[in-house]
Design a protein around this nucleic acid. Structure first.
Lengths: 133, 133, 133, 133
DNA sequence: GTGGTCTAGACCACG
DNA sequence: GTGGTCTAGACCACC
């Protein structure tokens, strides 16, 4: 598994970032329905994190129905997980962008300036990704 | 006063959102340098929030040098505050949009889909505002 | 822990004095980068002060970048804190002495008398410390 | 009267600084026992300050016995005021310097560094004053 | 256990 | 009236 990028610098809770990484793995096809996810202990050791924290991530994912425990085996990616991961992601992204634009307008930022930021960030994101690819 | 939209839906602490709103008010020209900002007690009553929470917002703004207390009189918008508030607002909006795009890419959302969301939300925001105007 | 001398006699707010003492502890080597500082609740109990007051001190120190919270663990001395605390201590002491001398001169106290006080107090301080050692 | 240097930049209450200026005027001989001090209204107008604030200063000075009201005339410098102003000043200065040195030692600042600050500030104070004279 | 947020209410200094 | 400090105690998220 290529789960990484944790450590520090962000402000979101560790367990939430772990859960996100696992969702990404599902949405991107690295983990497929029926696959066994890495065990709590193994993942905790790999990420240098308290096992409780990893357990919390899996607990949340299970309560969302994206993963399910298999007796004696571990934790499995659930059946309909792929599409649901993508769907929930899409909505989250859309909501954030809408909210950012709303606040910009409410605070009377110049429309041209808002649009410039949108174009600029979109361009930057493509540049850096193309660079990697 | 134009301060509102608090209450629910967000996850940031109340005092931080109040501070943001005050920054926006300065950036947008609703509060100008030398003006007295709404008093702690008044704003607390208006927002249905504890005065300490409002005081905390003002305290943070003071430590950034954007507002300054005037003994016995109230809290004043500082001299160079306008440009700094605009700068801060710009960075805040930009950071949010960047983060949203980053996460979209990390979860391997299709670039075309991300771009569609950006265009779509920007168009919607302009429609609704034009509708009002 | 070496934190004490609070209680009475001074006029600065309690939280500011606590913050100063913590800076001094770092400057003097009693707390080193990476160390966990005493917990809010523990320090509050020890100083017979409300936990909120201690928390405020730590909050201010964090906004200066001298301490940083570690999720679920406590509050840590930041990396570059030692030199910055020494710097801050130096300026604090220097400012106080400068202010005392300024006021003495403004009130037209005889220069020879001011100088006598400075020498006298410095001598006394050394005597009492040597006596202890 | 040459009372000035108020305005802003300091943190002590305005009324206390006014009271200090008046004490300095007495200690330095500008106001002598039996002289009438400037009236509350006149001084308030001159300093662009609320009359209540000036009144508070005089009230404090009266409760220290340094000034005394004269029916129908105004406020007078009291008899023994000169020596008492000098005396109280001397003690205040001495106490501040002692406290500054104490704290420096308690925080394990190098004695040589403390001494350097004392010499340095004393030298600076003399330079700037000689420059004026 | 840890820190962080929020509420409620008291008291003080200042103008 | 204003802001600032402090206390008391509740609740939350995180490890």
């Amino acid at each position: 598994m290529i789960l990484l990028d944790l450590n520090s610098g962000e402000e979101r809770p560790i367990y939430a970032r772990i859960a996100d990484q696992l969702k990404f793995a599902v949405a991107g096809g690295a983990l497929r329905p029926g696959d066994l996810a890495p065990s709590v202990r193994e993942l905790a050791k790999q990420l240098l994190v308290n096992p409780n924290t990893v357990a919390r991530a899996y607990r949340d994912l299970q309560s969302e129905g994206l993963f399910e425990p298999v007796r004696g085996m571990g934790i499995q990616v659930a059946e309909g997980a792929v599409e649901r991961c993508r769907q929930s992601r899409r909505e989250m992204i859309r909501a954030r962008i809408r909210r950012a634009i709303e606040e910009a307008r409410e605070s009377r930022m110049e429309p041209s300036e808002i649009e410039a930021i949108l174009r600029d960030e979109w361009a930057k994101a493509n540049q850096s990704t193309n660079g990697k690819a």
